[in-house]
Nucleic acid binder design. Structure first.
Length: 271
DNA sequence: AATCGCGCCTGACGGC
DNA sequence: TGCCGTCAGGCGCGAT
């Protein structure tokens, strides 16, 4: 489920409930995720104060003085704010309990997510160290994409979904941003002009921003940390709209698999 | 070196 | 009603 806007929505949703609280205990009900949840999490964190709730790409970073809990929601993960009176349900893997009684409950049916503890700077962690620039960084510009894409034969959609190029642009928002910048998803990244990249960089930022404002999009099973669905899905231009008329030219939206990912575009507007 | 595509899982959905 | 095939928003890693 969650792409960057959803993760940011979740970050903003949980932070006020837990920031500056002490970890009380960690209950690992089902350690089976992408990588097994290790017992050191429940040993290290209790007693430590949570100093910040940050995000890097689609990772949530819960920082203390000495450690960082790194949470990824994979395809189907969610976090819920709850308390001990509420019984755990199917696929509730981990409870992160705080001194004020608040529990952040991690649920993940497909188990593609992960919960890791590190005592280094999380940005140096193997999984985060190779990540590209944040889309909201001021250095993320058309020029940046243009320079990086010279001589790349890879298609533009794969290029912008590559986390080493820009972090956190998943399938939905790649489709939407390409539509809004009128670029065909199969065009070679190396054969796009700087001015078109300017437009693309802007549209990636705008699309993500809009989705964050809308509280994340809902396709199937997304619900934010309070359990309420987001509303961005109403604003999608192409994603999931195969056969529907393009909102600009009325030609039907095409769907096609590109690198194993379902892709949606208007073959008339996008070149 | 760059790029592709497999596989990790469960669950929802559509067709028969 | 049930069984089966297909698909899903991610991402690391091995193969090419």
């Amino acid at each position: 489920m969650p792409e960057l806007p959803e993760v940011e929505t979740i970050r903003r949703g949980i932070k006020p409930h837990i920031n500056n609280q002490k970890f009380q205990k960690i209950i690992i009900r089902n350690a089976s995720l992408r990588w097994p949840v290790t017992a050191d999490i429940s040993q290290c964190l209790p007693g430590q104060k949570l100093l910040s709730v940050e995000r890097r790409a689609k990772y949530l970073l819960l920082k203390t003085n000495s450690h960082c809990l790194v949470i990824h929601l994979g395809m189907s993960g969610s976090l819920k704010i709850t308390d001990a009176t509420v019984a755990a349900e199917k696929h509730d893997h981990v409870d992160i309990c705080f001194d004020n009684g608040v529990i952040v409950r991690y649920n993940d049916p497909r188990r593609f997510g992960s919960i890791l503890l590190t005592d280094q700077n999380p940005l140096q962690h193997k999984l985060l160290a190779c990540l590209g620039i944040e889309p909201f960084d001021k250095l993320f510009t058309g020029k940046y994409l243009y320079d990086l894409s010279r001589n790349k034969k890879q298609c533009i959609k794969s290029f912008i979904m590559n986390a080493q190029v820009v972090a956190g642009v998943g399938n939905i928002y790649a489709n939407e941003a390409l539509f809004k910048s009128a670029i065909h998803p199969l065009r070679s990244a190396g054969r796009i002009s700087c001015s078109r990249y300017d437009r693309l960089a802007t549209q990636i930022q705008k699309t993500l921003e809009l989705a964050i404002e809308a509280g994340g999009s809902t396709i199937r099973d997304f619900s934010n940390s309070d359990g309420k669905p987001g509303y961005f899905s109403q604003q999608l231009c192409v994603y999931g709209l195969a056969g529907k008329p393009c909102r600009v030219c009325n030609h039907p939206i095409i769907s096609k698999r590109i690198n194993q990912r379902n892709s949606f575009y208007c073959a008339t507007c996008q070149r």
